[in-house]
Design a protein around this nucleic acid. Structure first.
Lengths: 332, 332
DNA sequence: CTGAAAGCGCTAACAA
DNA sequence: TTGTTAGCGCTTTCAG
């Protein structure tokens, strides 16, 4: 049914119906008649037709690297909560860690289809920059900071620093690092820098073979740990960029009869469920993922209202959660 | 820019442009001119305007109870993979376990906005039935079976049966059960039935206080286990409806000095990451979540093409993964 | 406060 | 093959 048919049934004009749905002037009489007809017919206006006129879609595009990653899912939950409450719907794109698909989706959104975009960023290429800067709708980036754009990000550097320091202060002298690609400025580079800072402040140096770069997966953490543990000398603590990586590495230790935390301490960033129930509960830095989603959505909402040119960066702090993987070892 | 302006720039008619984007007849000459202009201007047609005419949105609504649940995320990944490849986008609604929001979203989608709906179902009320049957677009339900609708579901009963049987065959005589609400016909009722079947086939009965109903969370599993363990007599094996619940319950055992699997064996359904890295690796039934998503998407795609009246039910089988929580205890 | 009427940007039937 | 033209369902002036 379209607006004309419905208007006829309700016994009012098309314009009255339109006004009913768009807070226009309307007498109580007409309003009542429309409401009655609404109940009878179940009519609801076509979103598409409305968008043609108003250029408003009430759609927000969300681009994320991996849906089944707990952190991404949490961010998206936060986004969804805020945006749904404001009558927006999420257009979700899961790039499956395919960087070029990120750009594709941006291109797709650049045209029309959405009122705004939230991008859970990973690695930014010049292509990203160029597409992003040509965007006609407001964009908020989550998890990364990109000059000139609205960002909600975490204190990756601080978290990595604090965790590494924690282990070194417990007397560990041979720290190792399993990170992710430093092309990822947040989870890769910043966490690396934090680790490095703590290490050098402690007057230590890390041999090259104590540094590994993994993928964002447990299996990869396992593999890298295997290499780490195959050397002549073992590290006595390992900082991992993510909980999954840490868990994989810990599994490798377990298999090789290496005791955690006695022989090797572990700490990583993320505070995902997996770390809590691990065979040795994982010391981690809680990042406020859901809050990041909420804040990003609110930032977007603000942009949607008053589009000013100034871009903002919001950094959320972390929280250290000490668990078994960094427990002091009691000398008997 | 709209189609008229673009047509002018390209030096062709509106119709030619429209045909270019809709596989109509077009001479090579015009095609080339349009492509050239496309590069220069970056024009792309308005999806909304197109939808008004064609009544096709290329949007599929996905309704799910909890985004940050690994199983839901996996299903959605599968859906996304298939649908994106066919040029569809996902309109995601996270109901946050709010059953009435499920109905609301269906209502929202019932009107227009989407070409089809995939519903990751939990508990169906009569209201669901009524809204679903009034849907104007094809619907596929994942994870539940609802008479008269297209469903992709798991063999919950079989998985629960097999896991319980596995523990009983290892000589356990006092099985307990931590499930979820039986209003959830799949994860609740069917898994309960599977458990019951194995138990009664073994000639055992389960005392009332060995049956608990938890929420879909680790904490809830913990709480319920606490009650279970506070009784005079302890169970010697516990079947849990989900991995999270099992993990929570196991954590409770650990705190109380109860050995897993020696004192109590555990098994549950889901095969989520969390179970693999647990302090005792969890015996579980792998449900093919991603495959379910893929199959559901394909089912929807078929419906989208030829809308016949017949509804189909696709049941995916499980796979038992034996790990430490059901390891034989060696009598020394 | 109301309704008629002119579009929004696109598609598709039609005649050429 | 092509261009003209009449809508798709809605919003929004504008004159009442």
């Amino acid at each position: 049914m379209n607006i004309s048919e419905f208007a006829e049934i309700a016994g009012v004009s098309k314009a009255a119906v339109s006004r009913y749905f768009n807070d226009g002037y309307l007498s109580e009489d007409k309003r009542a008649r429309i409401e009655k007809a609404l109940k009878e017919t179940g009519y609801s206006p076509s979103v598409a037709a409305r968008s043609v006129k108003t250029r408003i879609t009430k759609l927000v595009g969300v681009i994320l690297p991996k849906l089944s990653s707990e952190s991404c899912a949490r961010v998206t939950e936060g986004i969804s909560e805020v945006l749904n409450a404001e009558g927006y719907q999420l257009l979700l794109v899961n790039t499956a860690n395919n960087n070029s698909k990120e750009v594709e989706s941006l291109e797709l959104f650049r045209q029309n289809r959405v009122d705004g975009v939230i991008l859970l960023g990973t690695v930014f290429t010049p292509l990203h920059q160029s597409v992003l800067s040509k965007m006609h709708v407001p964009v908020v980036i989550v998890g990364q900071r990109l000059a000139g754009f609205n960002c909600v990000c975490h204190n990756d550097r601080g978290a990595a620093y604090a965790l590494t320091k924690l282990m070194l202060e417990k007397g560990r002298k041979k720290p190792a690092f399993i990170g992710v690609t430093r092309d990822d400025l947040a989870a890769g580079l910043a966490r690396w820098e934090g680790f490095e800072k703590a290490v050098s402040e402690a007057g230590l140096t890390v041999p090259k073979n104590f540094i590994e770069t993994a993928k964002f997966e447990m299996d990869s953490g396992y593999e890298k740990a295997k290499r780490l543990l195959s050397g002549r000398e073992l590290p006595d603590c390992i900082f991992c960029a993510t909980d999954s990586i840490a868990l994989g590495a810990m599994l490798c230790c377990k298999e090789n009869g290496i005791d955690v935390p006695k022989d090797i301490m572990f700490a990583s960033v993320g505070d995902t469920k997996i770390g809590r129930a691990a065979f040795v509960p994982l010391t981690t830095a809680h990042l406020h993922y859901k809050t990041a989603g909420i804040d990003a959505a609110e930032m977007l909402l603000i942009e949607l209202k008053r589009r000013d040119a100034v871009s903002r960066v919001l950094q959320l702090d972390y929280e250290i959660i000490e668990r078994g993987t960094t427990a002091e070892y009691e000398t008997v």
